[in-house]
Amino acid sequence: MEESYPLVSICMPAFNAGKYIQEAVRSILEQTYSSWELIIVNDGSTDDTALVLEKFDDPRIRIHHQKNTGQCAAANSAYGLSRGRFIKFMDADDMISPDCLSDQMRRIGNSNDIIASAAWGRFYQNDINTFKLNEDLVRIDCRPIDWLVSAMDGKQVMLQCAIWLIPRTVLEKSGLWDERLSLINDFEFFIRVLLHAGEIRFAENAILYYRSGLQNSLSSLKSQKGAKSAFESIQLGTSHMLSFESSERVRKVCADCFQNFVYSFYPFHQSLVRCAESKVRELGGAEIPFESGGYTKLLTRVMGWKSVKKLKILLSGGAK
């Protein structure tokens, strides 16, 4: 392997991903950067994922089957099997642009202390033609804490795993995925990882195509277990930031993170919601508004966001 083209390891947990994983793998096979390996961990899938994986015959693809242990544990298993100098974690239902790896490697250069970020956007109903690039991106090169504050200011931060290309040396310092977490586990993990790097550099030709609207996706689950995981991930992630820099700007965006938890989970899981509200007050108050538009925005002004949220739940048949 030529040193000018170091190996990139793509670590992909897969659980019941038979419907989408071929597209994810195809996007990797189409990379203009060819020095990569793909480690797929089939995490006890009960659909046809194992059968679909048998179709892949590229020698750069390695497949490991295990009993179901959860996304974090499967990601850690994939990392344990990897050999690359650089690591990208990637979900089995997303895709990346053909120049993703090459542009991120160009931005990192020969450094072991720089993490490359990427552009991203969503597509819906499994239709790539609905893809729309997110314009609200942090496009500058900056210190990790500055990136985090900018990405969180007034909005929910996107820390989806395939956005990042990470030197192995950074992961050796930061540690791996917290296997206690399920919902928004990427929040805690990537804050911890980013804060162990020296710089974040933006690769504009690297694009993540993020599949949205999956009814059974992990992110759509709001069980008590999921709500507890989300709260713990926010608590851990914000603690990492505050330990790094306990400034007014960091406290503000951390308060907004807890306020977003309140907006998302109210009126369910009341004990966790109250804990989050207490965190907001402790951090000096939040400024991020309740997301609304049209008639909802008008009703929020008249009734307050909590009444509007209850009304929306009632009209949708009580779904969370």
Rank of each mutant, 00 (worst) to 15 (best):
R26M: 08
C72M: 14
S278W: 08
R301P: 06
A50Q: 02
K67T: 08
I145L: 11
S246N: 15
Y209I: 01
K222L: 05
L314C: 01
W36L: 08
P59A: 07
Y5K: 14
A227L: 02
F190E: 05
K252I: 00
V273H: 03
D93Y: 14
D43M: 10
Y209F: 15
W36T: 09
S307M: 14
I166M: 10
L314P: 01
G121Q: 07
F244A: 08
C142W: 06
I191F: 10
S247T: 07
S111V: 10
D91I: 03
G109F: 01
D57G: 05
T69A: 14
E2A: 06
N205V: 03
I128A: 01
K225N: 11
K252F: 04
A92W: 03
G175S: 07
F86S: 04
L272T: 04
V250E: 06
F268P: 01
D153M: 07
L137K: 07
S278C: 11
E199N: 01
R143K: 11
P289W: 08
Y295N: 15
M1F: 00
V170Q: 04
L159W: 06
D256E: 06
L272Y: 08
G304Y: 15
A276I: 07
Q270P: 15
H64C: 14
A73Q: 13
A119H: 10
S219G: 13
Y124A: 01
D48R: 12
D136L: 11
N205K: 15
K312C: 14
E245P: 02
I163S: 02
S27D: 04
E277L: 15
F190C: 01
I128H: 03
N260A: 12
R192F: 01
L298A: 15
T69G: 11
L101D: 02
V138F: 07
S111G: 00
F265N: 12
E135V: 07
V138S: 02
V253M: 06
D58M: 04
G44P: 01
M12S: 08
P289H: 10
S316V: 09
S77F: 06
P59I: 08
K309F: 08
C142S: 07
Q66G: 03
C72A: 15
S150H: 09
W120T: 09
G18W: 02
S217T: 05
R249A: 02
S219I: 13
E188G: 00
R107I: 06
S220T: 15
S223C: 02
I145Q: 04
R301Y: 13
E245I: 00
E30M: 12
F189H: 14
S278M: 09
L165C: 10
F189P: 01
I28K: 02
L81A: 07
V25C: 02
Q125L: 09
F131H: 03
M105K: 03
S292L: 04
G175E: 07
R251H: 13
H269I: 07
F189S: 04
I115M: 11
E291D: 13
L137G: 04
G213W: 08
S292N: 12
N205M: 09
K222P: 00
D43P: 03
S316Y: 09
L165N: 03
G284R: 12
L81R: 13
F131M: 05
E248V: 11
W147H: 15
L298Q: 14
V25D: 02
S292V: 09
D136A: 12
D99G: 12
S264T: 13
